[in-house]
Design a protein around this nucleic acid. Sequence first.
DNA 1: GCCAACGTTGGC
DNA 2: GCCAACGTTGGC
Length: 151
Amino acid sequence: MAYWLMKSEPDAFSIDDLRSAGQATWDGVRNYQARNFMREMQPGDNFLFYHSSCQPPGLAGIGEIISSAYPDATALNSQSPYHDPKTSAERLPWVAVDVSFQKKFPTLLALTAIRLLDGLEELPLLHKGNRLSVMTLTTEQWAILTKAAQA
DNA sequence: GCCAACGTTGGC
DNA sequence: GCCAACGTTGGC
């Protein structure tokens, strides 16, 4: 089983939205490195739900990956905010996965608090200028973050 | 609202 | 294939 971290702007889709929906489609990712990680996802993997571009940014909870990657049709939809006019049904590089709610942390683990934790030197989230919206976590990173979030 | 960092685009 | 210009991300 693998561990992931995925970012979402809570104004668009938050941990509370996932909790009320129970499950959801994680789509709209338009970056090849993030896409490649999504292709590796398997049902049963867990991910940390990160709220970005908000105040404060940080980890809000845990979800589960419940499907492997499949083509992200929002790229083809001219009405979608995720429309990618360079794609077609024959040439569709983007993927989505289905996810389910697992838990919301008692309090948000803010980015400022994450920066103070030991053992996360390799975590891309903390690297200056990093914008990757889907990243893999080692078992150790997962343990450090989930422990801090529920302390 | 600012701006640093990064990815993408397009001229050559 | 290089690289400058541009657009986007996302913390502050």
